[in-house]
């Protein structure tokens, strides 16, 4: 196993982990504060990618499109909260699941009608297309570095906001005692809408960042949402710190598993058997991780202290 590949795949894993964190943080934020299970969170990720793809062609610039798309997806999340989600807070989780499952069908079909069945690939400007040499033989695409930087910056911003601002204080207070916060005169409804919109922006940002690498496509949201669930289950549902650490662990394990598992298996079985079994095992790796974490710590690695 050569170190060059290991470093590159490690960075890819870091990138996947940060994108997962952007999706999972919104999910865990909304669940921790609103006690609301939003299956349609993945659809926000998808819609973000599609809006950004369309605007990239409109403005002829990916970066401008990204900046314009962020408030748009926030507004979309805000409206979704007011129209659908708000009515379901008082219900139990089964209603959340069924209602947002219906919402996924609606959003996906509307996206299908607007953007068509085929994915849209997003062109990058030239200055983001190049490679950066880290050492003499390790080269990393600029855009992947940008994703990592953007992911880390959003994570830092989120931590700062939740821990050191008045809004963050209200959010934390709302998470531990909703009734008390509203009794103290805080407009809890607006606070909830803001939290929801923030989750939408984070998920949308992840979708926009991944779109130039994969493409904006219909199934993308439904694929990532389950992985995001795995992240917040492993991290402890409602815990931001847990989501961050679990997202990085899962991103790295998933990427490295896909890249190196056949080499590892080849150490103790025939290379043919390794080649056949490695894809199967590596696709299950993160779920096996989830199962073993749950077996020992049913509440996840970092269960939130107050609920």
């Amino acid at each position: 196993m050569d170190t060059t590949l290991l470093v590159i795949q490690g960075l890819n894993g870091l990138q996947l982990g940060l994108l997962l964190f952007l999706v999972a943080s919104g999910l865990t934020l909304v669940f921790g504060i609103l006690d609301f299970v939003n299956l349609a969170h993945g659809s926000l990720y998808m819609v973000g990618a599609f809006i950004c793809a369309s605007l990239t062609f409109y403005f002829d610039s990916f970066l401008i499109a990204l900046v314009v798309s962020l408030p748009l997806i926030g507004i979309f999340g805000y409206l979704f909260e007011i129209v659908v989600a708000r009515k379901l807070y008082e219900r139990d989780h089964l209603d959340h699941v069924l209602g947002t499952f219906g919402a996924i069908l609606v959003i996906d079909t509307v996206a299908h009608i607007i953007w068509g069945a085929n994915g849209i690939s997003v062109p990058l400007p030239d200055y983001l297309e190049g490679q950066v040499s880290l050492t003499s033989d390790i080269q990393i695409p600029v855009f992947r570095l940008l994703i990592i930087a953007a992911g880390l910056a959003s994570a830092a911003l989120l931590f700062w906001m939740v821990n050191y601002t008045r809004l963050g204080m209200l959010i934390r207070a709302g998470a531990s005692n909703r009734t008390m916060v509203s009794a103290l005169g805080v407009d809890i409804k607006t606070l909830f809408s803001l939290v929801f919109a923030m989750g939408a922006v984070l998920a949308g940002l992840a979708g926009m960042l991944i779109a130039p690498i994969t493409e904006a496509s219909l199934g993308m949201g439904n694929n990532i949402i389950i992985t995001a669930f795995v992240v917040i289950i492993v991290g402890g549902i409602g815990s931001m710190k847990g989501a961050f650490i679990a997202a990085l662990i899962i991103g790295v394990i998933d990427t490295l598993g896909r890249a190196f598992l056949d080499d590892i298996f080849a150490l103790f079985m025939s290379s043919e058997a390794a080649e056949n079994s490695a894809p199967a095992i590596s696709s299950m790796l993160i779920y096996l991780l989830m199962a073993s974490v749950l077996y020992f710590k049913p509440a996840g690695l970092f269960p939130p202290k107050v609920r």
Partner: peptide
Amino acid sequence: LPFGLMLV
């Protein structure tokens, strides 16, 4: 689309 709407 109508199926999902109905569900919601």
